[in-house]
Nucleic acid binder design. Structure first.
Lengths: 149, 149
DNA sequence: CCTATATAGTACGAAATCGCACTATTGGGA
DNA sequence: TCCCAATAGTGCGATTTCGTACTATATAGG
């Protein structure tokens, strides 16, 4: 790699970090007090891909350490948004199940945050996102592969 | 906004979050134990834009709360990478100065992390980054503006 | 000049993040 | 069958993040 290019890559990841920071804070402003993006993301993930997954599967989906997921899930369970059942297929494992409250909570959060996304969408139409999403996903895949192998 | 589009925006910000997560962990693996991306970013910022800035200026540059920056700077000072001087122009404020150790530490970190970026650069050449950087910067600007007013 | 309001930084406490070490369980050989 | 290495989850402690409230200083308006 040309040495001159290094700052460009720093800048790119810095920009990604700030974008993440800003979008997180903006979105959390539309969530009920005490609910973080991490909490919502897990609920959303379970609704989209189906519940019954193990904590480790969820942790891997977000590229987070399993201890972080243990903590997040314990908060969600304390709030009655999920329940943790023993995994019938594996005695070491658990099965994360959405409660009815968790499901409606997720749906409500999407509704209340719609204005936030609408403002953003007015400025950045879907086509623009679709242009860059494949690249971001490819980068994610590359870094993921590099991390594991 | 078309309601059908909401998941696209969720997906976009989720992808940004995971990318941030992966790049942070990957980069921190090349930093000395106990040094985080947040620490390095501040040092890098001071080298690039010049030191003598106030804590609040730095916090704003990264869109972080000033209390977070107070903590980060206290760690950097404890490690001898910066010094905090009173700001001669404003008695309420401080002036963040790089030490020689801080400067060389930053330079060394860039060197040791070069292989990490080289692998990434081989897969994603500079042109690809330059294609998306303006859009990301525009998004950052929009969210920043929305946040403040 | 004086007062009120705004601003810079910090102390503090709560929550999130995460590495390490531990337990329980599994599953693949000897 | 019996190990034993690998895996899932958690307890614990250190660090980071960040909101609230506070102190000190600056600045504008009367």
């Amino acid at each position: 790699m040309d040495k001159e290019q290094t700052p460009l890559y720093f800048q790119f990841f810095t920009e990604v970090g700030i974008l993440n920071q800003l979008s997180r804070v903006g979105f959390e402003a539309h969530l009920p007090m005490g609910i973080t993006l991490a909490h919502f993301s897990v609920l959303n993930h379970l609704v989209r891909l189906g519940d019954g997954q193990t904590p480790l599967q969820i942790a891997k989906a977000f590229q987070l350490p399993k201890t972080t997921m243990t903590h997040t899930l314990s908060v969600l369970e304390k709030r009655g948004l999920i329940v943790m059942r023993p995994n019938p297929d594996d005695g070491r494992s658990k099965s994360v199940i959405l409660t009815e409250l968790g499901r409606t909570f997720r749906d409500d959060a999407i509704v209340t945050s719609t204005p936030y996304f609408a403002g953003f969408a007015a400025q950045f139409p879907p086509e623009k996102l679709k242009d860059v999403l494949p690249l971001l996903a490819e980068m994610r895949g590359f870094l993921d592969k590099e991390r594991n192998g």
